[in-house]
Write a protein that binds this DNA or RNA. Structure first.
Length: 134
DNA sequence: CTCCTGACCATAA
DNA sequence: ATTATGGCCAGGA
């Protein structure tokens, strides 16, 4: 799968995250069939344009610990993510140091791999072994 | 080509 | 709970 297909697969999966639920970068990658590409899920979401159609609920993706990545001091991305989540009714706790996190035990959405709809090119990879040839 | 970085993860102490 | 370490893969300098 090339870069464009990867992006498409990420968006496809993220769009299936139900309201009031969140999932992790790692699980999105696993659902696509590439469990070791967790970092690139974030990359793909970064490339995402706000006016994408249909919209992609990027804010429903957090780290595996439930923490919202800070993106560094001075950036408001994390705060915006918190606002989006709370607007839906998801509880986001904020520590005294400004660390924001979601309780995955309550809000987590981690469907079994293969139990959700996937793009055809990714379905192949999700089934089992890929690129045995070549 | 090598080196560094990243909206990360798993494990160990 | 926290920090340290190693691994991961793709892009960019």
């Amino acid at each position: 799968m090339d870069s464009a297909e990867f992006h498409a697969a990420v968006y496809h999966v993220v769009r299936q995250i139900p309201p009031l639920k969140v999932t992790s970068y790692g699980h999105v990658a696993a659902l696509i069939g590439i469990p070791r590409h967790s970092r690139h899920v974030g990359q793909a979401l970064k490339f995402l344009s706000p006016d994408a159609t249909p919209p992609v609920p990027w804010y429903r993706v957090v780290s595996s610990s439930g923490a919202i990545s800070s993106r560094g001091p001075g950036t408001e991305g994390a705060q915006r993510q918190k606002d989006e989540l709370e607007a839906e009714g998801v509880e986001v706790s904020t520590g005294r140091t400004g660390d924001m996190r979601v309780n995955l035990a309550v809000w987590g959405w981690f469907p079994q791999v293969g139990s959700i709809d996937l793009p055809e090119f990714a379905g192949d990879a999700a089934e089992g072994d890929e690129e045995l040839d070549q």
